[in-house]
């Protein structure tokens, strides 16, 4: 019997209505995360990563956002169909999120301890005093002295604030943590500290995680699976080893080529030519075709479907679809 995934996203499409027209933020996205798995969610700015995360949590602002198709199965429940009340029970308790910018993700007029207590008391019937004690322990866990629970966010540095945010996210020991570029707003040394912290908790608590990031190095270090996102679609999805050893999609290859190599001296970094498509335009064929070095005739007017390279590795590209057709013959 196939083991049930913790999160299963099928054919998810999300669009935003703006004054410039409809923005197709997410197009028929498919992905899955098993229990205790970490998925790296990689893509350029505007590829739809954060939209996907917010849609999973049901926090997509509507309007302007709108889910036009698909389902999001979390532990067997369709997050798009459940009632608000049911969702509030899941948020925080089973899924929690770490936002990108710690400077703005804490309430400036509430003591940090109270912000953790709020999370705990929303999901556990427990006295204020006990909740405070738990909050203090959480702070110590993320490396902040317990006395500082009585301080306000502006008295913390960026890295410390992100630790507080992590403490809030971990408070109810969720099954899934969505980390939306958790280290982008921090400087490099702090990035490493925070990343190690996240990695450690993921292992001790055994939570699954979606890690949204630009950093392929971090992905290699802590992720089990990777979804490469381009123009609102997962163009390649595989476990980490396959992605690094055998990148298939021309976009993935382009991404890896653009990483500077330490052993050769190069004047210019390799780049992927051109820019991602305007999100308001609908490209007829494959959305990467205008930038693709391997673009074929068919790519210009037909959208590639999902082709499985092996059981856990799929790609949306005609290059491989043809191969499959060939082997079928």
């Amino acid at each position: 019997m196939e083991k049930q995934n913790l999160l299963d996203i099928k054919n998810l499409s999300v669009e935003y209505k703006t004054e410039d027209g409809i923005v197709y933020a997410v197009n028929e996205l498919n992905m899955e995360i098993g229990h205790k798995e970490t998925l790296g969610f990689v893509g350029e700015t505007g590829a739809g990563k954060t939209t996907t995360a917010m849609t999973i949590m049901g926090l997509l602002p509507t309007p302007p956002g709108k889910v036009t198709s698909g389902e999001i199965l979390f532990d067997g429940r369709d997050m798009l169909k459940i009632s608000d009340k049911e969702r509030r029970g899941i948020l925080g308790e089973e899924i929690s999120i770490i936002f990108q910018d710690p400077m703005t993700s804490l309430n400036p007029s509430m003591k940090v301890g109270d912000q953790i207590v709020e999370m705990i008391r929303l999901h556990k019937t427990i006295s204020k005093k006990d909740a405070m004690e738990e909050a203090n322990k959480l702070l110590e866990m993320v490396g902040i002295r317990r006395e500082r629970a009585n301080d306000y966010p502006h008295q913390f540095s960026g890295g410390m604030k992100q630790r507080v945010v992590i403490a809030i996210a971990l408070a109810c020991q969720p099954k899934l943590i969505i980390a939306d570029e958790p280290t982008t707003a921090l400087d490099v040394t702090i990035q490493a500290q925070v990343m190690n912290l996240i990695k450690g908790f993921k292992e001790t608590l055994g939570t699954s995680m979606i890690l949204i990031t630009h950093d392929l190095g971090i992905v290699a270090e802590i992720c089990d699976k990777v979804a490469i996102m381009y123009a609102g679609q997962v163009v390649e999805y595989a476990d980490v080893e396959s992605i690094y050893m055998n990148p298939c999609h021309p976009y993935t290859k382009g991404l890896f080529n653009s990483i500077p190599k330490l052993d050769t001296e190069e004047e210019w970094l390799e780049e992927i030519h051109g820019l991602p498509p305007e999100p308001t335009e609908r490209i007829e064929g494959c959305s990467f075709s205008p930038r693709c070095p391997n673009c074929m005739k068919i790519c210009k007017h037909k959208k590639p479907g999902i082709t499985y390279i092996d059981e856990k590795h799929y790609v949306r590209c005609f290059l491989y679809e043809n191969q499959e057709v060939k082997t079928d013959e």
């Binding site: 948020l91 925080g92 936002f99 703005t104 993700s105 929303l122």
Partner: peptide, 14 residues
Amino acid sequence: RQDFVKTARAKGQR
């Protein structure tokens, strides 16, 4: 529109 409001909603707050 600020992020901490999203944080509060993500806690499952009413």
